[in-house]
């Protein structure tokens, strides 16, 4: 229902300026499956795409803007704030961010604030400031104002970790209708399913959109160890303890001096 209303609104807005929008986005990702192995130190994925006129209805416009939003698997995090208590710094207050993306990249060809009006950006959740980050406040779950200190700290910390980013240079137009976007995945990228949402803007309004997806998986030995630790904790513990004994024993044999 919401999407329908949204489409209607977009069509309405676009039609008020120019004849009915009729672009189509075609995108392709360099790699849909990213394996995290023992030598993984991060990777840059490339998204290629073109803007095509739909069934030759209209001629293409001259200036387009493109925003790519990549969201990682959802998880719940707690943001804690320290305060001085009896001379030492202690976590006194915390907020839970419910189902926040573990990875969030907003990539565009110029600052999102220049692409469309603030109301449009907020409705479409474009930009770190406009992305919905619901917090648990008492029994309710709701997003707060943009300058809420916990929200600001949350976005800042995630940005420092390289897991959240907003880049106004990551999308480049090779020709007026062919573009490429670089999606950076840091070394400690969370594993799981990622959604890629591509939105095309012209004259401050969204004219087309498409989706893609990618998957980050732990591969080989890493996957094996992580699964063992999670699913067979007790057995994993015994194996680790046994490993300690074997290494200790080898050490005493190798370096035996008498």
């Amino acid at each position: 229902m919401r999407r329908l209303a949204l489409t209607f609104l977009v069509v309405l807005m676009a039609s008020s300026i120019k004849p009915a929008a009729a672009e189509r986005l075609v995108v392709s990702l360099s790699n849909h499956r990213v394996p995290v192995t023992s030598s993984f130190t991060g990777e840059d994925l490339v998204l290629f795409g073109t803007i095509e006129p739909d069934a030759g209805k209209t001629a293409l416009r001259s200036a387009y803007d493109l925003v790519v939003t990549v969201t990682g698997p959802r998880h719940t995090l707690r943001t804690r704030r320290k305060e001085r208590v009896l001379g030492i710094w202690v976590n006194v207050d915390s907020r839970e961010f419910v189902r926040a993306p573990s990875y969030l990249s907003i990539l565009s060809n110029r600052p999102v604030s220049d692409i469309a009006h603030q109301d449009v950006l907020r409705r479409l959740q474009i930009g770190l400031d406009n992305f919905l980050l619901p917090q648990r406040i008492g029994a309710d779950i709701a997003d707060t104002v943009r300058d809420d200190p916990f929200r600001v700290a949350f976005v800042r910390l995630e940005t420092q970790h390289g897991l959240y980013r907003e880049s106004s240079t990551a999308v480049t137009f090779l020709t007026p209708t062919v573009f490429r976007a670089a999606i950076p995945l840091p070394a400690d990228v969370p594993t799981g399913n990622y959604a890629i949402d591509v939105k095309l803007f012209a004259g401050g309004a969204m004219v087309a959109g498409t989706n893609s997806a990618l998957e980050v998986i732990k591969a080989g030995f890493e996957q094996y160890v992580a699964e063992a630790a999670r699913d067979y904790g007790l057995f994993y513990g015994f194996v680790t303890a046994l490993m300690a004994l074997v290494i200790g024993w080898i050490g005493s044999v190798v370096f035996r001096r008498d």
Partner: peptide
């Protein structure tokens, strides 16, 4: 570390995966 004001008063902790 406990007495000196930390560089960042805020920190994150993972609660659960969804």
């Amino acid at each position: 570390e406990l007495v000196v004001k930390p560089d960042d008063l805020y920190s994150l902790r993972h609660v659960r995966n969804e």
